[in-house]
Structures are given as C-alpha cells and as structure tokens.
Design a protein around this nucleic acid. Structure first.
Lengths: 137, 137
DNA sequence: CAATATTTGCAACACTGTTGCATTTGCAAC
DNA sequence: GTTGCAAATGCAACAGTGTTGCAAATATTG
C-alpha cells in the first residue's frame, strides 16, 4: 500500500506534516470537505496554510475542487490518477461531489477550420442519488 | 405584450421601481448576472436592497439562481437562458475567448440510477484559429 | 386620503478566500 | 551530520460576497 508520504513525493511536492494530515483527512472523509470542515477536523492548522495546502493538493492532482450549492468550495481526495481529463463528470449541485462516469466519452463535435483541440470536458450537473432522495425526505 | 409590471403583479409581489429595474436588467442580459454585475448596471441601487430584490424574484419564480465556477451566485430571468445551456463551448487557452459551437452537443451518457440531470456542458479547450496561426510565426 | 404591511436604505456584521512578509522547515548537496 | 536555499508556514491585514436589525419610506387596499 502506498503511504500518503509516497503519494506526495511522487506528485512532486515537498512532504510536510500539514499536507499529510490534510490529504489523509480528505481521503478519510465520505463527502467532499469544505475549508470549514477541515478546520474542525484539524484544529491546530492555520487558516491560511490550510487554504494553501488545499491549493497545492489540487494543483498536483491529489485533490479535486468543486463548488457546492451554497457557493462554498469543497475538496476531495482524488487518488492520484490524473486521467481525469478525457471522461465525463457528473457534479452534484447539492453536495458538490464529483462522480466519474465510466461510459465512453462522446466524440467531440467538429471544430471550425484552424482550431486545435487540446482538452475536452463533458460536465454534467444535477442531483446525485443521495441528495435527490434526501430532498423529498 | 406583458410588461414587467404585469409580470410582477401576476407573481403576487408588490411592484416597486427597484424590482422592475432589476428584472429588466436580468431579462436584457445575454448571460446570467452576478450581484456585482447588477450593481454596475444599476449604480443607484442599494447593495442590500439588490440582494433582497434578487431573492424576491427567485422566490416568486421570475428569476433563477445558480452558482458559477468561482462560487458566486448568478441570476437570470426565468425563461431566458435555457437556450445557452445545451450547446458546446470552445475556450481558447491562449486568448481566452469563448466560441459557441453551433453543432448539436452529443447526447449525455447514461447516469447511474437515482441521478437527475439538470444541465450539461461540453467544454472544449485548445487553440483558436487566430492564435494557432500566430503561434508558428 | 388614511391605515398598514412591505420594502427600502443604512450600518454593522459574518463568512470565505487572498496577499504580503518575516520566520521556519524540507531536502538536497556537501 | 552540517549547511544553503527555495519552499512552506504563521500571522496580520485586507477584499469580496452575502446577511441581519432597525428606522424611515412606500405600495397597496379600502
């Protein structure tokens, strides 16, 4: 099994206690966590450092960042696969969770002449099964 | 033709100059507007009143509220905006311009059971014709 | 026009996120 | 180990977005 330390090292960022603890908190969580959630779980962490650690994890691909329905950023551990580009994502507008759809991504539409495609993202938004159920409780 | 005043009256809320102006600004906009956008368009409006007017319009069904990628609420007059949803966008990573692709977007993939699709966006990124040509100068 | 429930404007606040800068720390090279 | 230095941290201050309380103004109803 690959430790958090190895994950960080492999991702090319310095290994610090803060990054280890934040990543492990994200990985242990069942839901994407907001900055406030993480502050509650890691009471000793500095507010600003926490923001910067989260940024680092997102940039190096270890975490994903999304916006929930209240406009708050939520973060989730993304298990280090940066293959997140070429398949469709479903983002729940309620809980902010992102689901990867395994179905083959649809072929990109034709582009005007001269345009060069670097990257494509099919983003679906809506309500996930959990939140849909919770809605008409 | 139904004037804004009639729309408001029909929706069961008091008709005030602020509500009329805000609704008409929303209806005239090509994109959903943030609170800040509206403040720029209506320089005389009070900040807080603007928030409350927007809330009222949403509650009475004349406007829709959504969160953008930066976590900011954006508002649009109901009825508008359903057409800008279902087509693909190409964003040039060089000049930042966004092009709307007229071709019909591919059908959304199948979702897991219980998931409800509200909105889909096919985002392509790359280099537009202009910038591609400029590149091998 | 008068009565009254709503709405407005203002001040103050709360939450989320960012920037600048001095200090500490990871880590690589000795 | 020790050292050097870029990077990360902690702190303070700030910026943007949204909310609450309350007194004054106003849209509707009769």
């Amino acid at each position: 099994m690959s430790s958090t330390i190895d994950l960080l090292r492999t991702s090319g960022v310095k290994v610090t206690p803060g990054r280890v603890r934040v990543y492990e908190a994200l990985a242990a969580a069942a839901q994407p966590l907001s900055h406030a959630d993480l502050e509650a779980r890691l009471p000793d962490a500095d507010r600003v450092t926490l923001y910067r650690v989260l940024d680092t994890l997102v940039v190096c691909g270890l975490a994903m960042k999304a916006v929930d329905a209240r406009g708050v950023f939520r973060f989730s551990a993304s298990g280090a696969q940066s293959e997140h580009r070429r398949h469709a994502h479903f983002r729940c507008t309620d809980c902010g969770r992102v689901f990867c759809l395994k179905d083959a991504p649809p072929p990109p539409p034709k582009l005007p002449r001269g345009f060069r495609l670097a990257d494509a993202e099919y983003d679906l938004r809506g309500t996930c099964a959990n939140c849909a159920r919770a809605h008409h409780k």
